[in-house]
């Protein structure tokens, strides 16, 4: 009950400046100075074998920024990164029915294709313009544009916000 109530309050607070909320809730294309990070942070296992990406390579796929709330109290912020759809398309998994997103600590979630086709789901590389450390759920994190669609407020999506992302592979939905 309390949680629902707080969620409603948060929503109401977000809804206060409607025009800003509308524009900020939907990821916008942003241009960033490239990072000098050559270390591989993500492996995508596609049909043509695995592809490895550094943060700079990922951001080269086109970056979008979104101000969003999260399911967690101190997690709000401006997240920037390529869309999951762009990464998967680049890796040859654009037509995959679903993908398994695996974190460094072994946690993983299966995301169905409808998710990244329906919403501009981000594979965030930065928060508040800064690359994320592991202690800050980085360096890659799945961000759903939660404020854009009320459907995304459902707790069923909470687990799909995978952080410490290190690997993506095709999976059965």
């Amino acid at each position: 009950m309390k949680r629902v109530l707080s969620m409603l309050l948060a929503l109401a607070a977000l809804a206060l400046p409607p025009a800003a909320a509308q524009s900020l809730a939907v990821p916008q294309a942003v241009a960033l100075p490239p990072l000098a990070a050559e270390a591989v942070v993500l492996t995508v296992a596609g049909p043509a074998g695995e592809r490895r990406y550094s943060l700079a390579e990922l951001e080269a796929l086109g970056t979008f920024g979104v101000h969003t709330s999260t399911f967690w109290p101190v997690d709000d912020g401006h997240y920037v990164g390529p869309t999951l759809a762009a990464v998967l398309a680049d890796a040859g998994l654009g037509e995959a029915a679903a993908v398994r997103v695996v974190a460094m600590d072994g946690f993983s979630q299966i995301l169905p294709r409808s998710d990244w086709e329906r919403w501009p789901v981000l594979l965030a590389t930065r928060r508040d313009d800064q690359p994320m450390r592991r202690r800050d759920k980085g360096p890659l994190r799945i961000i759903y544009p939660r404020d854009m669609d009320a459907a995304l407020q459902d707790t069923r999506y909470r687990l799909r916000w995978v952080w410490l992302v290190t690997r993506i592979e095709a999976a059965a939905p």
Binding site: W72, R135, L164
Partner: peptide, 16 residues
């Protein structure tokens, strides 16, 4: 180091 980061991360989240 990774285990330490994870533990810190977890600890922070769990605290909340």
């Amino acid at each position: 180091l990774l285990a330490l980061d994870l533990a810190v991360l977890r600890q922070r989240d769990n605290r909340i």
